[in-house]
């Protein structure tokens, strides 16, 4: 009697565990797609709730109207978009695109030689240099902005140094202009350019280059006809990864741009946190997203044509 009870007590939890184990094995094996979807569900649901629904909410908001005291009246109107594209605000969008575009171009021009060096010449130093590239990226951007303000200010380090060397008579206007904003953007986003470039250069089989040299190509020819075309996917990816965050930037412009060089990010922030005109802010955000998506589409077309001619 007691023996049976003991046996039952031993058996019961063991059997329950084996059932749980069966379920876990089913999840781990993933032979049925249901298991895969079940494992992916929590993360996908998280994205749905905290990313897709909010964006949908924002798009709906962009069609609403502002009520009194910053409230939102749910209507259906395109007026916010009309306002965003009128001559008062359009220059901001264009300026943002111009700054982001020049920052991307500069990042490419400055970053390509670095990526090339890392891939072809760095040797033992490569690991260290790659880590060193990432440290400023992982530093709080606010702190770096603060440092640039010290360096570039009217009575800042650079003007002080140039003055002492007798190179300039009056302080140069280095801060609060387009130059300082683009410099800040280049500083922050250059790792985004270098890493994909480096990745694509690493993938080039070195035998291709040897073959080019064997066939009599000069180093310049080998670079232009082998290395450069094969690095294009990295160039595209790098440009995209640089351009998109530059378009959305508002901290750099807020601190380094002064009052006259604000970007669309600053305008959006203003509508949401200062003027309390959320529908208009939402329309500006929608325009930003729209321009980025069309850019993305253009990029994919371009990339598809380059990679598979």
């Amino acid at each position: 009697m007691t023996q049976t009870a003991e046996a039952a007590a031993e058996n019961l939890p063991a059997r329950r565990e084996s059932r749980a184990e069966k379920l876990l094995s089913w999840l781990i094996r993933g032979a049925s797609p249901a298991a895969s979807h079940l494992l992916l569900l929590p993360a996908a649901a998280w994205l749905l709730v905290f990313l897709l629904l909010p964006v949908a909410c924002l798009l709906a908001l962009s069609l609403a109207t502002r009520g009194p005291y910053g409230t939102v009246v749910w209507s259906f109107t395109w007026a916010n978009f009309g306002r965003a594209l009128n001559p008062m605000y359009l220059p901001v969008l264009l300026r943002t695109a111009a700054y982001a575009g020049s920052a991307t171009g500069l990042c490419l021009a400055l970053g390509f030689p670095l990526a090339y060096y890392l891939s072809f010449y760095a040797g033992k130093r490569r690991e260290t240099l790659l880590v060193m590239l990432m440290i400023p990226f992982w530093t709080s951007c606010l702190v770096a902005i603060y440092s640039w303000m010290i360096i570039l200010g009217r009575h800042g380090l650079l003007n002080d140094l140039l003055g002492r060397l007798g190179l300039i008579q009056a302080p140069l206007p280095l801060l609060n202009n387009g130059f300082s904003v683009v410099l800040g953007l280049v500083y922050f986003y250059i790792p985004f350019m270098v890493l994909p470039l480096y990745g694509s250069l690493e993938k080039i089989p070195r035998a291709y280059l040897e073959a080019a040299y064997d066939l009599g190509a000069s180093p310049a020819e080998a670079f232009l006809k082998v290395t450069l075309p094969l690095s294009l996917p990295g160039v595209f990816a790098g440009c995209l990864l640089t351009f998109v965050p530059c378009m959305g930037d508002f901290l750099t412009a807020e601190f380094l741009g002064g009052p006259r060089n604000f970007l669309i990010g600053n305008l959006i922030q203003n509508q949401f946190l200062m003027s309390q005109d959320w529908p208009f802010g939402a329309a500006l955000t929608a325009l930003l997203v729209l321009s980025l998506i069309s850019g993305l589409y253009f990029y994919q077309r371009l990339e598809a044509r380059q990679i598979e001619p």
């Binding site: 990313l51 629904l53 909010p54 909410c57 924002l58 508002f250 990010g265 939402a282």
Partner: peptide, 20 residues
């Protein structure tokens, strides 16, 4: 889907979440 948060400018993420 999982790479969307990386590609999205943070300003967009911030205001969407606020509105939501």
């Amino acid at each position: 889907l999982f790479s969307v948060p990386l590609m999205m400018p943070e300003v967009v993420m911030g205001v969407s979440l606020l509105a939501f």
